[in-house]
Design a protein around this nucleic acid. Structure first.
Lengths: 327, 327
DNA sequence: GGTGCAATTGAAATCGATCCCAATTTTTGT
DNA sequence: ACAAAAATTGGGATCGATTTCAATTGCACC
């Protein structure tokens, strides 16, 4: 494969000049034309590894999520990637499966890649132990964040959103409401807090289950709740993956919503509006989250000193059939 | 950030020796210990750009799909990535939106990255124009392939699968069956061929629509079909994205399946089993497709000369409520 | 025609690793 | 204990680009 020296010889100029053509440096039109022609002749492609080594910037960002198969992360990723490529950056995608060891491994990989920055949805455990300053690149957290604002982050107003679900269910006439929350992310904790708060405000108990973030775990947990002495009249579920488990549990228990159990949760996945009269969910602005994260990262790269900030976005309550008023 | 020279000095050895420690070269245990300790002290991270430049292998593969939000590609990607990382390779993910210009752009990027190989789901147009030999890296096509076996590929037995859907519908008593197919991929064409063939074998006409590969396009097309004079009694839909459009069209037209129109399609997306009594679909072995593609790529890297081959995987018919026998 | 200044161009160092080859040390065999 | 063989180590070139700095060219103006 042709290198810059070959192009230089073919065009009768020095490698420096070819490089200048590549980087839009000062070159006379005549020479630029000749060089470009030579590049075409030789089908020249700059070697990005060499360029990165010499120029000391990789124009690459890392995107570390738990599982790209979770539609929330799929959508966010797509937005991040579009935005990144628009800004001339590549994306390295990593799936951690909510496993702190994998998180550490990928962070290490990001260091070896000398990435420009990282967008990261960490587990609670990693949030607690991580010192982003020691990493050598800026980090923007998404979906999850530490309580104190020490790292840039883009998150949903989780407490408000969870409370909004509760308030909605209360307004529809439900009282016996139970919650199911993911146990690995700060998001699950926040949503639980909002849930508990709103229930307490209504003077109601707030029974809650914390489960591993998988469909199967949620299905098992919900099946158990449904089989219990005091079956809840409504369920608040803290994300789309768990909601899928809940729906499966209801189906296999032969129960119907909202007649037997009302449902309300998070993430407006495509199927939620198709199920019966629709599932009531908080829709997250997934595209905006991805774009905001990328924008924050770019701003941070512009100014390493500016104080960290958290962008809090609001969810949108989509009230649908699964939380119809109590008959 | 520390470099190899710093580590060498700290450990009192030459850079060559440090490099050997990194690459498991021949080093005495004593020295290896010292070097490793120095690395820990300095929090050393090898610079992958430098390593790639010098060693002339990037251990990076490109994964080019149309849209990661399509659950089929999401699942395949996840399998590819797991398999890649397991083999010590990174993945660069690209979304082309079935746009040949983007495809060309990303292929060019892959050349600049000097990737080891590429796994690619190309549009028909690109399949027709592309000369994989000129790219400089091996390509394994997934989901789609050229008719003649000139490039490694992993595909479904699309004709058989589509025919299986038709045969199933016929067996259930349906006769007026129409098809909806994507118009940008060879996959759509193959599935149409299988559909048409099976219908012809039954002595039936095979009305078909070709649409852009988006939910909206499918929804519009299906709405039109449903409003036509002769509404079909059953629909074969060529992938999960289009199926979503079809379901939406039925819903908004106030029609029910299978009573008004039976449905059968591809891709066992999570929601297909939840809708009513379930949607009849051909399940693709998504994980296997990703793993097989990665395995093929590795074999090809091992032996550039072996003759190209196509791995054809079989889909699995999941007969569910949407194609219940005609009453 | 010569001078001064800006615009182009080229030479050579450099980024941080790997790798070839030669030098050195250690091990082995007798 | 000594020579030969094997194992380990170091020196220095190299991968393919960018970047600094100096040299050259072109042009305007006196």
């Amino acid at each position: 494969m042709a290198k810059i020296k070959d192009v230089a010889e073919a065009a009768g100029v020095s490698p420096s000049t070819v490089s200048r053509v590549l980087c839009n440096g000062p070159v006379s039109d005549k020479v630029r034309k000749r060089v470009e022609e030579a590049m075409r002749q030789l089908d020249y492609r700059p070697n990005l590894a060499a360029r990165r080594l010499r120029s000391q910037h990789t124009d690459t960002i890392g995107l570390i999520v738990s599982d790209i198969r979770n539609p929330f992360f799929t959508a966010v990723s797509r937005a991040v990637e579009d935005e990144a490529y628009r800004n001339g950056m590549r994306v390295i995608l990593c799936n951690t499966d909510e496993n702190p060891d994998k998180e550490a491994m990928y962070l290490r990989l990001m260091q070896e890649e000398r990435v420009t920055g990282v967008i990261f949805a960490p587990t609670r455990q990693t949030v607690a132990n991580l010192d982003p300053a020691a990493l050598g690149f800026p980090v923007v957290m998404i979906d999850r964040a530490s309580r104190d604002v020490t790292t840039d982050a883009v998150v949903l107003d989780n407490r408000r959103a969870a409370a909004a679900l509760v308030e909605h269910l209360l307004a529809q006439g439900y009282r016996d409401i139970a919650g199911v929350f993911g146990n690995t992310s700060s998001t699950g904790m926040e949503r639980h807090a909002g849930f508990a708060e709103a229930m307490q405000q209504a003077g109601l108990p707030a029974p809650a289950q914390f489960v591993a973030p998988s469909v199967e775990a949620a299905e098992q947990a919900v099946l158990a709740m449904l089989a219990a002495e005091q079956r809840p009249r409504a369920l608040v579920v803290s994300n789309g993956v768990l909601m899928l488990g809940a729906v499966r549990a209801l189906k296999s228990a032969g129960l119907h919503w909202p007649q037997d159990v009302a449902l309300a949760g998070f993430d407006n996945d495509v199927w939620t509006e198709l199920l019966g009269d629709g599932l009531t969910v908080i829709e997250q602005p997934v595209g905006e989250i991805g774009r905001a994260a990328m924008a924050m990262l770019l701003e941070r790269l512009d100014d390493a000193e500016r104080s960290p900030r958290i962008v809090v976005l609001q969810g949108k309550l989509l009230a649908r059939g699964s939380s119809a008023p109590v008959a």
